[in-house]
């Protein structure tokens, strides 16, 4: 058996268990409330500034994320991110933040990159408490923030 085959695991194994949700989820008062999406939006400026060093984000097509219009499983929303930007020593993407405005804690994750990755192309799965704007913000090593934002509906709350 080849080294690769030994280390490999099937797609089925890979995703096994990932979608399991505790039945206790709805008990804690975090169930989705469709009306909540209509509430006044959180002031994301300070949250973004805290995580990314500035709140001045410019929408930029270089930031790509194939987010669903509606997520069937709010505890498992795929966030595949690609940034079309050089990754060389003098000009690279230093960090990428993922934010969900309507989550109790909007900052979901912040990644720091080095030019050694060659390209920023990654995927995580996230929880969403209710329908929300999802933001992906990339910071260049010069400190410029490039962003993408999209409304993502969810079928039911993700107890985030």
């Amino acid at each position: 058996m080849s080294e690769g085959a030994k280390k490999g695991w099937t797609r089925r194994e890979f995703f096994h268990g990932v979608g399991a949700v505790s039945a206790a989820c709805a008990v804690g008062g975090m169930a989705a409330n469709a009306l909540a999406a209509e509430e006044a939006a959180v002031d994301m400026g300070p949250i973004i500034a805290e995580a990314m060093g500035s709140k001045d984000v410019t929408a930029d097509a270089a930031v790509k994320a194939e987010l669903p219009e509606k997520a069937d499983n709010a505890t498992l929303v795929r966030v595949p991110v690609k940034i079309d930007h050089p990754m060389d020593a003098k000009n690279f993407i230093q960090s990428v933040g993922i934010f969900v405005d309507n989550n109790p804690k909007p900052q979901v994750a912040v990644f720091e990159f080095t030019p050694e990755v060659g390209k920023v192309d990654f995927e995580v799965r996230i929880k969403m408490a209710k329908p929300s704007k999802v933001r992906v913000i990339a910071k260049t090593n010069a400190g410029k923030l490039l962003g993408l934002e999209k409304m993502v509906d969810v079928a039911a709350g993700g107890c985030a």
Binding site: F14, N103, A109, F113, E116, D121, R125
Partner: peptide, 28 residues
Amino acid sequence: YDGKTVLKGKWTAAISKNPFFSFSLKAS
């Protein structure tokens, strides 16, 4: 990668259970 830190992630509890994470890397 080869003893050098190339990427870091600061996560919160809003990352899904049993976290899957994939990323690109330049082979050297």
